[in-house]
Design a protein around this nucleic acid. Structure first.
Lengths: 339, 339
DNA sequence: TATGATAATGCAATCGATTACGATAATAAA
DNA sequence: TTTATTATCGTAATCGATTGCATTATCATA
């Protein structure tokens, strides 16, 4: 196994000091043109590549940012990562990715690992059951900027969130305006602020548009699991529950609901309309195509990365945290009636 | 901004040498129990964390592996990454991810960046239009092991591939055995070995089962784009092409085909059966549900990571490359008739 | 010819940790 | 009391690159 070529190797070969080699390689005017040329020639010949580790150690700068998120196999998150990677790459940064698998323990270990690697900053979407935040605070205290995305946290830091209230509101409003007035809501896990916001939008739209509302209209669905939601709707139907519209907290839940309705020979959207959330890739493939609320994951990733890089490059010790809320967009498709 | 705590800080505080601190922290028996306790206590108080950069430089070992792949927003690849991350995490490794966006130039830069970061090894799925491999060879020459996955390459290295020939063969066989004998194939991009293997399987199955075959049965579809494949099938129908089964190189193409058939009022699977490839998440959601060939991406990622770690930890200079071909599995669903 | 200015390069510290080796002191053995 | 032994800790080199400062050589000027 060949060892990588170092400055010292070049210096020895040319019988000069490593400092001279270093300066010559970066075209310092201090070095004579002749020496400079000799060094650069040899470096090219031996295929010299600087050791990023040594550079990082010297400059206390790794040009690396860490990303922590709950899941990798997830359409929305993969679009976010892609956005992050785009920006990072264009600015000469690499990204280290950790998936917490929605585990707080794992998340804590991840923050430690990223700190030990001396990443220049961290982008994080906290796990569902994260309720203490000491591990993030500790990182901040060590001077490493963190930008949170998608899921809100009670930490004084920059955040890129999606307007989940607006999304829930508009989804519900759309159902109501298309003539459905007896809606139910498949809500996300309790404690996850993002899904509570969507639920809040659901409730508010009822009030604003003068549609009666009661708590029974909210059916809690835990995970992103089509089967589970299939059963929830099937159950509701068996119990004789009446409704003409469903707002699901995500597209997977919406698909489960759709399949339950189809299995029960209930026509969509004529008898019951459905609207999902996030515009997963499949949502335009299924039949009928799924009306949904689009969140621009790529944009969220790009914005988050840009904000983080800004903080990284900021000379100031203290940075006023920014909070950006991205708008959502309703995508009208087949599972709702368009008036 | 606080600076991170270093060994030197602890040493100064306790008025002892850094070497003593270092040994004490790792419980060396050379150090007296009293000193050891004092050091460990202070380290905990000041929240000391070792600088992984310095360690990496010292040991020429970063405990980091690089991953290069064409796309992040892709169901199959995201499952592969997830598998890689699982193994890497369990062995104390971090992963740096680069997406090449199917660009060879980007891929070359990525290999350079990963080498400069001195990753201990690389997992790579080459871009579609990679036809020279010098950038990978160069890395290998520097003693960094590479394991390729999913897409085959003419390089002497370990590989984890999926049995695309088998997949194509079984898909075709299934269509034929369910009574369809006039098949067409939506094939992947030319030059991509993986899709050519699937096509080979398609052809071979015809021969083995005694079904006539000619080249017109192969329709080339470039990208994973439902719209494009929608048009291809629509076109074929308009031209009066006759067929009763479609083998699509991936599920996205299959969906495009399905939609084109549905738009033309052709019943699936009665008049035309469809089988896709990769078992994307949506394939069990659409209607009818999509019969497909499942590749276990998670397994591929795990195997690739395990193989790479094996090579990383191997003491031997030369490692005999291993080639593992993972079997595929046919998932019978609604778009084909099950006899 | 001596001196100052300038150009070109080397020396050595530094980043944070590890570790071979040497040094000191205390204790035990002779 | 002297020597050998052991326990404990410090010194300094090292990983690969950068950079402030010193050094040398060269040339021009007084």
């Amino acid at each position: 196994m060949k060892q990588a070529v170092t400055l010292k190797d070049l210096a020895r070969e040319l019988n000069i000091a490593t400092s001279t080699v270093s300066r010559a390689l970066k075209g310092s005017p201090e070095i004579s043109a002749i020496t400079r040329a000799r060094v650069q020639k040899l470096a090219k010949e031996l295929n010299y590549e600087p050791n990023a580790l040594a550079l990082s150690l010297r400059h206390s700068k790794t040009n690396t940012i860490g990303v922590i998120l709950p899941e990798l196999v997830h359409f929305f998150f993969s679009t976010v990562i892609s956005g992050i990677e785009d920006i990072a790459y264009s600015r000469g940064y690499n990204i280290i990715i950790c998936q917490s698998n929605e585990s707080i323990d794992r998340e804590i270990l991840d923050t430690k690992a990223l700190f030990n690697h001396r990443v220049d900053g961290i982008l994080a979407c906290v796990s569902r059951n994260t309720s203490v935040y000491d591990h993030f605070i500790a990182i901040q205290d060590k001077g490493i900027p963190i930008v949170f995305f998608d899921r809100d946290v009670p930490i004084d830091a920059s955040k890129i969130l999606s307007n989940d209230f607006e999304g829930g509101y508009n989804a519900t409003k759309h159902l109501i305006e298309s003539g459905k007035t007896n809606l139910i809501h498949l809500s996300g896990p309790e404690g996850l602020m993002l899904s509570e916001q969507r639920t809040r939008g659901f409730v508010q739209a009822h009030q604003d548009l003068g549609i009666p509302f009661n708590k029974e209209k909210i059916l809690r669905c835990g995970d992103e699991d089509a089967q589970e939601n299939f059963k929830i709707i099937q159950n509701a139907l068996q119990k004789g529950m009446k409704f003409d519209g469903i707002f699901a907290v995500n597209d997977i839940a919406a698909v489960g609901a759709l399949q339950a309705l189809q299995a029960a020979q209930i026509s969509v959207p004529q008898e019951v309309a459905i609207i999902g959330y996030s515009d997963w890739q499949f949502s335009s493939f299924i039949s009928p195509t799924l009306t949904t609320i689009r969140q621009n994951g790529n944009e969220m990733g790009r914005k988050a990365a840009e904000l983080l890089l800004e903080e990284i490059h900021s000379k100031d010790t203290f940075i006023e945290p920014k909070s950006i809320t991205l708008p959502t967009e309703i995508i009208l498709r087949g599972t709702t009636l368009n008036k």
